[in-house]
Design a binder for these strands. Structure first.
Length: 484
RNA sequence: GGCCCGCUGGUCAAACGGCUAAGACACCACCCCUUCACGGUGGAGACACGGGUUCGAUUCCCGUGCGGGUCACCA
């Protein structure tokens, strides 16, 4: 039988990386077996509707490369794929259960339930579970608002199997008579979820392990209808590290206070969608080999449910950063340049510099957003600290710098402005003076750039700046040194 | 609090009763060197604790501890 999984987010306007990872594992579970991946929007909560939220879901899946085979936007044989468009479908199913004695009308008011809660009761007291037929008809005739509740066993225990966690057993007295249809006629998530999964032919339910203890309720529903229970795959949670008021480091469920945990936030910070996917694939799952960098296709091939871990994992930006640099390093020149272009444009860099820029930037950045900061010295040249000319390892100091710059500026003015010529000029000068290359390179680079750290070495800095700007800056620097 | 789940270095994790307990990120040192990176070599660092079962437990069982999840007319 063909495997069918589904991603069923509710449109809240924010795609958390935890949700994305669930979507990824759902995608991988089906695609590894050549199955179908379905997108269903769960919008039964009218109060939580957020404008434009579904677009965020589409955009995220598209950017991440998790293409769905069926969904509201692409159609399919099991539509509609938005719960609010399926509303008429649910109530008859609930009525069917009422008729069969497996569900019942509950006329309790919210106030009564709240009071119950305040008195310390846990769950519903099943007040309406055994109303007489007369009472029910009476209430119905009077138009008393009602919900439909599922009738769950009071004693014994329920066991089911999960592919990750094994057999799970829950005492039945822990299970509440959950609401299937709300007073407004809408189905609850729990009910709609089961009806939809079944009617859409979902074979594998992949979801976070927060559902581990409520799954018996879902199973009771499948049983009540006489439907096959799907295969369950519950996923460990993703945690985040943060600092509490006392300055202590605490680990808790990943949320907004842990920084950018929304997929779009991460993308805006310069993480590549494929790097994010790669990284979160590794949070809670390990391949059978030591490979760590994967394309989506490689993930599909390598994915194996046996590799899913049971323990929660901590989201680590440092490792994500590393994955990102690996993706950047693996890029072709064209790929790198097209990603970098928006940042080049901001700095007014012309196309003739692109090859050199790629050469010096590609091994040095971990995110494209760092380009501006790395190249800022090209735009800004201020009163930097002349202490920068002092560098022990290069055997450079202010005196040697003055000597080198005095000799080298006139030579630079008369040379061709290309990497080979400049390098040759500087090394030949060093050789003739019997000093280390670094004694020459250091002051020239510092004098031109005005910052200690630059991507690329001395000649690259000069090329990027251009002849005129370089000479001007070197002259300025020399003047400042001699004045001291 | 009841119930459920988890616990290998700072982090992600391998091992599915049998070694001196892989690997990756981060960290440190050294090398390379025209700064910083890249790259290369090496280093430090872990089976939560206590009982069992067993010839032998990180691995199986039971407690304890710690962490997490869940107990809605939310999804």
């Amino acid at each position: 039988m063909k495997i069918r999984t589904r991603f069923a987010p509710s449109p809240t306007g924010f795609m958390h990386v935890g949700n994305l990872r669930t979507a990824l594992y759902e995608y991988l579970t089906s695609k590894h077996e050549g199955g179908d991946f379905v997108l269903r929007i769960e919008d039964t909560d009218q109060e939580r509707y957020v404008e434009g939220a579904t677009d965020i879901i589409y955009n995220t899946l598209k950017l991440a490369g998790l293409e769905h085979d069926e969904g509201p936007d692409v159609g399919g044989d099991y539509g509609p794929y938005v719960q609010s468009e399926r509303l008429s479908l649910y109530k008859p199913y609930a009525e069917q259960l009422v008729k069969a004695g497996k569900a019942y009308y509950c006329f309790c008011t919210k106030e009564r339930l709240e009071k119950l809660h305040e008195e310390g009761a846990i769950g519903y007291d099943r007040h309406c579970r055994d109303l007489s037929e007369n009472e029910i008809n009476d209430n119905l005739a009077k138009g008393v608002p009602y919900v439909i509740r599922q009738k769950l066993p009071l004693t014994g225990e329920s066991t089911y199997h999960d592919l990750v966690y094994g057999d799970i057993t829950i005492p039945n007295d822990e299970l509440d008579d959950q609401i299937l249809i709300k007073a407004d006629g809408f189905p609850t998530y729990n009910f709609a979820n089961v009806i939809d999964d079944h009617t859409m032919g979902i074979t594998h339910v992949v979801r976070g392990c927060e559902y581990l203890s409520s799954t018996p309720k879902y199973n009771a529903l499948y049983d009540a209808f006489g439907w096959d229970i799907p295969t369950y795959i519950h996923l460990p949670l993703i945690m985040g590290k943060s600092v509490d008021e006392e300055g202590k480091e605490v680990i808790s469920k990943l949320s907004k206070r842990h920084g950018s945990t929304g997929f779009m936030d991460l993308v805006n910070e310069g993480y590549l969608p494929q790097a994010i996917i790669n990284y979160i694939a590794l949070l809670g799952w390990a391949p059978s080999t030591n490979q760590e960098i994967f394309t989506l296709d490689e993930l599909i091939k390598a994915f194996d449910i046996n590799g899913i871990s049971k323990s929660p994992s901590v989201f680590d930006y440092t490792k994500l950063e590393w994955v990102n640099t690996e993706f950047i390093k693996a890029m072709s020149y064209e790929e790198f340049t097209s990603n970098a272009k928006p940042f080049y444009d901001k700095l007014g860099l012309t196309e003739d510099k692109y090859p050199l820029l790629a050469e010096i930037l590609q091994p040095r950045i971990s995110r494209f957003t760092q380009i501006e900061e790395k190249l800022l010295f090209l735009k800004e040249f201020g009163e930097f600290d002349t202490q920068l000319f002092e560098h022990k390892k290069s055997k450079s100091n202010k005196e040697t710098s003055i000597a080198v710059l005095t000799d080298i500026i006139p030579s630079l003015e008369n040379t061709d402005w290309n990497s080979e010529a400049i390098s040759a000029l500087l090394t030949e000068y060093a050789t003739s003076k019997e000093i280390k290359n670094s004694v020459v390179m250091w002051p020239v680079r510092i004098g031109a750039a005005g910052v200690a750290v630059t991507p690329g070495g001395c000649s690259e800095v000069l090329i990027l700046l251009g002849k005129e700007e370089s000479i001007n800056r070197l002259k300025t620097s020399l003047l400042r040194l001699t004045k001291e």
